[in-house]
């Protein structure tokens, strides 16, 4: 079971994690992109934190939708619409919910990732955030079907996301600005896959803290 307050806490924790990792994500981006991913994500989640108190006592769907709208209007670049759509879609899947059972948690992430796929049209191996999300979702689904509890299932999902993130290192980018580098994009970890891993890992840590 995941409560509304835990979701709010997750978003607050995530803002802190992204602030701590601002330079790390920007450094990853400067190797194969335009050196602003950490700066943009930090700016976006700072805005989310400003907005959260006004919606924290509504419902999970509304909280996530507000997060999505805020990211869309403050992040810019490619990650703004991608993460914005992720939170908008996950919020739309959870309208009026005050708490989430395991099925809802999967629904939240699956709807969000569907949003990323519709917006960015990635395929596995393109060296994008989808390379972290896709194995993470599969692992979560398998663990839930296996009867694992929320924490155990999410632990497996985070491990799969971490592996997916590391698997982007030898890939040649086929999407985004990194794709213009051709073979020179090989050997660098994708910044979007990295921030996606941090997102899921922070969710697990938030739930473990209770």
């Amino acid at each position: 079971m995941v409560t509304r307050d835990q979701i709010v806490q997750w978003l607050n924790n995530l803002a802190e994690v992204l602030a701590e990792n601002k330079e790390y994500l920007t450094d990853l981006d400067s190797a194969i992109g335009d050196a602003d991913h950490g700066i943009n994500m930090n700016r976006g989640f700072k805005k989310v934190i400003e907005k959260l108190p006004s919606v924290a006592d509504t419902d999970i769907g509304n909280i996530l939708k507000t997060t999505g709208m805020t990211l869309i209007s403050s992040v810019g670049g490619a990650s703004g619409p991608l993460y914005g759509t992720f939170f908008m879609r996950s919020g739309m899947a959870l309208q009026a919910k005050q708490e989430l059972d395991d099925g809802d948690l999967y629904q939240m992430l699956e709807s969000g990732v569907e949003g990323i796929v519709q917006r960015g049209r990635p395929v596995l191996g393109d060296k994008t955030m989808f390379d972290a999300w896709s194995p993470a979702l599969e692992a979560l689904k398998a663990a839930t079907a296996n009867g694992d509890n929320t924490i155990t299932a999410l632990e497996k999902s985070v491990m799969a996301a971490e592996q997916g993130m590391k698997d982007t290192i030898p890939m040649q980018a086929r999407k985004g600005r990194a794709s213009y580098l051709g073979e020179r994009s090989i050997g660098h970890q994708d910044p979007g896959a990295t921030s996606s891993y941090l997102m899921l890992k922070t969710l697990l840590e938030t739930l473990q803290a209770e």
Binding site: I72, G76, G77, A78, G80, P81, L82, G84, T85, R119, G120, K175, G176, R177
Partner: peptide, 10 residues
């Protein structure tokens, strides 16, 4: 450019 395209599509 990927960023421009995704933001304008939204």
């Amino acid at each position: 450019y990927t960023g421009d395209v995704l933001n304008f599509e939204t």
